[in-house]
């Protein structure tokens, strides 16, 4: 029995590797958008509405500095952005770009009262409204909370997703670790803390699942199929979805 399972697993692995050897084309962030404002490395994008008369209050999505803005638009058929557009919302998003050495002196004030405030003003100007909806995700949620507290006259609604706000907590591993880290020393040395350094920290939160199980899980999802085009397409789709993340 175990021997048969081993053979089947090997077949799956083989099929997966065959696809990886000729990786399928895939793209992320495919929902059409226009650039309406840029400032330094920050870009404000406006998604082209999919309904004739969108909901009047526009949504500004503020994402984290440590990830890419198109996380909410990874797959054309499973996209938060597309869903919001189809529901009739007018959606804007901030792309923070890739930081370089010249960004090491930027402060929270620059991000919140500078870039976000300018983006909000631009959206207000375009929509002719005094207030907009802020949707902050992850660190962008923390920024949005700060912004809404500082400029309540410009925020109609505030929505936060996975946003850390209470840092005086021991509920998460990152909270516990952060208290023992000499963050100033790290920032002084790197200036811009490298993504790999942060990623290392995130991987340590559950190393076996994130560094082993995630990849084993991918090959486990591959189906064993010989000369079955539909099955091969499903396998390709599985690999594409994995590569998008």
């Amino acid at each position: 029995m175990n021997g048969l399972i081993l053979i089947e697993d090997f077949e799956k692995f083989k099929h997966g590797m065959e696809i990886f050897l000729m990786p399928p084309d895939f793209s992320v962030g495919t929902t059409p958008s226009d650039i309406i404002y840029t400032e330094d490395k920050m870009t404000l994008l406006h998604y082209i509405p999919t309904v004739e008369k969108p909901h009047p209050v526009p949504i500004l999505i503020v994402y984290a500095l440590v990830n890419r803005y198109y996380i909410l638009d990874l797959q054309p058929d499973k996209s938060v952005i597309k869903k919001l557009l189809d529901e009739g919302f007018d959606v804007y998003i901030i792309d923070w770009g890739y930081p370089s050495g010249s960004d090491r002196y930027l402060t929270l004030d620059d991000y919140v009262n500078g870039y976000i405030n300018n983006a909000v003003d631009k959206i207000k100007e375009r929509s002719g409204l005094d207030k907009i909806t802020l949707l902050g995700v992850c660190q962008g949620g923390t920024f949005s909370v700060m912004y809404a507290a500082q400029h309540p006259e410009k925020v109609e609604n505030l929505v936060t997703l996975v946003a850390p706000v209470n840092f005086d907590s021991d509920t998460g591993l990152l909270h516990i670790w952060a208290k023992s880290l000499d963050v100033d020393k790290i920032v002084d040395y790197y200036g811009i803390v490298p993504g790999d350094f942060l990623n290392g920290g995130f991987l340590l939160t559950d190393p076996f699942r994130l560094m082993i199980d995630k990849y084993v899980g991918l090959f486990d999802r591959i189906e064993s199929c010989q000369d079955d085009t539909e099955c091969q397409l499903r396998n390709e789709e599985t690999i594409k979805n994995f590569l998008r993340i």
Binding site: I176, W177, K179, S180, L181, D182, K185, I186
Partner: peptide, 8 residues
């Protein structure tokens, strides 16, 4: 946490 802090 304290070990990792020291190492870093």
């Amino acid at each position: 946490a304290s070990d990792m802090g020291k190492l870093n």
